[in-house]
């Protein structure tokens, strides 16, 4: 494992910790999209089915379990927690997730490397992860002033993707025969989706202003 991959994973881990801290410390999930969190849980569950039959390393196993449990935990907070659930604004978080999940499933059934249940679900999770942030970005755009921690969460999540791009470039240069086109193309699209957000995040940070996205 190279430094970019490790830094990417740590950034991903940190983003979730920031999100959980925000929810727990402020007892509020204002500005957090439940739809995106549910999509991520679906992504992790469909991708990490291999926990049941293949082992790569203790590191991988731990991280997979962490991602599944933490996104489940965020969803539990938003849906079930007595005070946090009252701060969830479902009227703003209206993205139709089936418009994302259905095309991803059709694509996974069409473009995959092996027509088996686990491989199609794995491919589905790669496609779905690429677009799962969209409900969150739409919600941020609707929120006039984005609170710092929510902004940081999305920034770290985008940062993790950017580091994975570097990881792939490193692997292409160092591992003969290494290729994974489905992952590369989806990952590049996923990172590109953050470009606009990055621009406004860095601008507000440089001007010392609160983040607000133009509508």
């Amino acid at each position: 494992m190279n430094i970019f991959r490790f830094a990417g994973d740590m950034t991903h881990l940190l983003s979730i910790i920031v999100l959980l801290l925000k929810i727990n410390a402020t007892k509020s999930c204002a500005g957090v999209s439940l739809k995106t969190q549910e999509l991520y849980l679906l992504v992790f569950v469909t991708r990490y089915l291999d926990l049941l039959y293949s082992y790569i390393s203790l590191y991988n196993t731990f991280m997979k379990l962490f991602f599944i449990c933490s996104s489940g935990c965020v969803i539990w907070y938003i849906r079930e927690h007595k005070t946090v659930s009252q701060t969830y604004d479902s009227a703003q978080d209206t993205f139709r997730v089936l418009f994302l999940a259905c095309p991803c499933m059709i694509l996974a059934l069409t473009v995959n490397h092996d027509f088996t249940v686990t491989e199609v679900l794995w491919t589905f999770s790669i496609y779905l992860e690429a677009v799962a942030i969209l409900p969150q970005l739409v919600l941020l755009q609707r929120t006039k002033n984005v609170d710092t921690l929510t902004g940081n969460y999305v920034f770290l999540l985008g940062g993790y993707r950017a580091l994975y791009l570097l990881n792939w470039i490193y692997r292409i240069l160092t591992e003969p025969g290494y290729r994974q086109w489905i992952v590369w193309i989806s990952g590049t699209i996923q990172t590109a989706i953050y470009c606009d957000f990055f621009y406004y995040y860095i601008k507000s940070w440089r001007n010392n202003e609160r983040l607000s996205l133009p509508s």
Binding site: R5, D9, H12, R47, D50, S54, I56, N60, M63, K64, F67, H113, W122, Y164, N167, Y178, R179, Q180, W181, I182, V183
Partner: peptide, 10 residues
């Protein structure tokens, strides 16, 4: 199809 590597990333 050429074989892709094992799914060793997260």
């Amino acid at each position: 199809y050429r074989e892709e590597p094992a799914h060793d990333e997260l």
